[in-house]
Amino acid sequence: MAIRITCINKDNGYHENPNVAITHLGWVEEQTGEKGKSTMLEIYNWIKEKNGKAYVKDGSGDKVKVITAETSNGTKYLKTVADNTVRNNLLALPEC
């Protein structure tokens, strides 16, 4: 099962890495139509531990894979694989 991340929520604090500000992600499983909203850590663990697949659609409608990452301090977060744009595809999503 793969989910498309459709929106995000962020906290309002200062973050050296803006991706760690993401607290929740809205998603849809396009084959079944199931929709949900999960915490960043729930999606992180689903990808990392259960081999879950997630993606966003970029400005051209292409799928861009969402992957797990950690800061040098060990803070877990999500980001997209680099593509041919400098735009941050995950942070560019609308608020849920």
Rank of each mutant, 00 (worst) to 15 (best):
K50F: 01
G74I: 11
A2H: 04
A82K: 12
H24S: 08
V20M: 08
S72A: 09
I47G: 08
V64H: 01
K79N: 05
S60D: 12
I22F: 08
E70P: 00
L78Y: 01
V20F: 00
K65C: 08
D83Y: 07
N88H: 07
G36V: 13
T71E: 12
E42C: 02
S60W: 13
Y55G: 05
V28N: 05
E34T: 14
K79I: 02
G74C: 09
N45D: 15
T6E: 15
Y77K: 05
A54E: 00
D11K: 09
V56M: 08
D11M: 02
G59C: 05
T6P: 09
G59V: 09
L91C: 00
I47T: 04
R87A: 03
R4F: 05
Y55Q: 02
G74H: 12
R4N: 03
N19Y: 03
S60T: 05
E29W: 10
A21H: 03
H24V: 04
V56T: 10
Y14F: 15
G36Y: 08
M1C: 01
L93F: 10
I8F: 11
L90M: 09
N17I: 14
V28L: 07
I47Y: 06
G33I: 06
W27K: 03
G33S: 13
V28W: 03
R4Q: 15
K35C: 06
K79M: 12
W46F: 11
A2K: 04
L93G: 07
W46I: 07
W46V: 01
S72V: 00
L41H: 01
I22V: 15
N73I: 06
K65D: 14
R87P: 01
S72R: 02
E34W: 09
S72G: 04
G13H: 06
V66G: 02
